[in-house]
Each structure stands twice: as C-alpha cells, then as structure tokens.
Computed example of a mutant assay.
Amino acid sequence: MTHSVNDLRFVERMGGALTDAGLPRLPSRAFAALLSDEDGRMTAAELAAALEVSPAGVSGAVNYLARVGMLRRERHRGSRRDVYVVDDDAWHTAMLRRDQLYAPMVGALDEAIADLGDDDPRRVRLVLTREFLVFVDEELADLATRWDDRRRALLRRSR
C-alpha cells in the first residue's frame, strides 16, 4: 500500500495535533495513518512501513489505541495476522467508553472523601474534582445523544 505525500503530510500534522493534545506520539501517528487510510484497515507491517518505525513500536501504539477505544483488532480469515481497524466514527466510539475512564476515578475519589473529616483541607479539592468528573460524564452522555442525531442527519444528506 502506498501513501501519497498528502497522506504523509496529514499523518504528521494530525499526529502532531493529537500529541499536542496529550496522546503519545506514535499512537497519535498510527491513529492518523489509519484514519487517512482508504479503508481504515492496516496490518502492523503496513503501519510500520507507513510510519517508518519498528514493528515493536507499532505493537505498543496499537495496544494503546485499542485500550482507549480508538481502534479495534481483527484477524485476517485463515491467518494469524492482526488487522487494526479505525471506525468511521472512532471518536464517538472512544467517547462511549467514558464509564471506563471516569468511574474508576470517581470511585477512588469517593473512597478518599469518605476517609476525610469535614474540616480536612483536602476535602474541598477532592469533592470539587469528583463533582467535575461527574459533571463531565453527564455532559458527555448528552453530547453523545446529540452527536447521534447529527450523524444520522449527515449520513442522510450524503446519500
């Protein structure tokens, strides 16, 4: 599979933007490569070639992306080779996994808050942190519903 200069430019630019937003560099570039791939499906060897990195680097990158829900792993039929797939709506898919992100943090905060007295100076900071995460989680649920509506409208218009 060959990539055009524009594809490579996109991978570097989008990868850089994702890195600036806090994602590790190689997973950012791998996600960008999959996002810009014609069918959004690449093997580890294809990713390594496209990104000019080692297969070991690709392994760590795709494991990270799978863990955060930005891609999924499939098997070639009759083969032991994995294919890494980014869905057309990968951001939405990752966002729907918010319970795996926020619930453990809220649980840890609940435990810590329960162990503190009302006059403990740490209590306010921990309560505000917990309430912020609960607020964000609730807002993301509403946002996901609005996105579903908008996505359906976009898909209807594009047909």
Rank of each mutant, 00 (worst) to 15 (best):
Y64H: 14
L140G: 03
R25C: 05
A103T: 14
E138K: 15
E139I: 00
R98A: 06
R75G: 05
D119W: 02
A153R: 10
S54H: 13
L8A: 04
A141R: 13
H92E: 14
L35N: 10
G78F: 14
D99N: 10
D99P: 00
L18F: 15
G15A: 09
A61G: 06
D88R: 12
A112G: 03
L35A: 13
R146I: 02
R72G: 00
A108T: 14
R75S: 11
R152P: 00
L140K: 05
R122Q: 13
E74H: 03
R73Q: 13
P121A: 06
N6W: 08
A108P: 00
R146Q: 08
R72C: 03
L23I: 09
R80T: 15
R159H: 08
N63C: 02
A66C: 04
L26D: 09
R77L: 10
L51F: 09
M70F: 12
R80A: 15
G107Y: 08
L34I: 04
Y102G: 00
L116A: 06
R122A: 12
R130Y: 06
A112M: 07
E38C: 05
V124H: 12
D87F: 09
L96G: 15
D82V: 13
A48I: 10
E111N: 05
A48H: 09
R156C: 01
A21H: 08
A17G: 09
F132V: 06
D88L: 08
V58P: 00
G15E: 12
P55I: 08
E138L: 11
S4W: 03
W91S: 07
G40Y: 08
G60K: 14
A48M: 10
R152M: 04
L126H: 06
E52W: 06
R41K: 13
L133T: 10
S54A: 15
A49V: 09
A103C: 01
N63H: 12
E138W: 03
I113T: 11
L101N: 02
L143T: 11
A112I: 02
R97S: 09
E46H: 00
A33N: 07
V127S: 07
V83F: 02
R75C: 04
R130M: 10
L34A: 01
G107D: 14
A21D: 12
G69P: 02
V62T: 09
R159N: 06
S28I: 10
T2N: 12
D99Q: 11
A114F: 04
A144D: 14
A30L: 05
L71T: 12
L143C: 07
Y64S: 07
Y84T: 04
L23C: 05
P27Y: 09
V86A: 11
V127Y: 09
Y102S: 05
T145E: 15
E46D: 12
S59M: 09
L154G: 02
Y84L: 10
Y64R: 02
V85D: 00
L26R: 14
P27L: 10
S36M: 11
W91A: 13
L51H: 06
L23R: 12
P55W: 01
R130K: 15
G69L: 01
Q100G: 14
L26P: 00
D149P: 00
P55E: 14
R73W: 08
P27G: 05
R72F: 07
V5W: 02
G60V: 07
T145H: 12
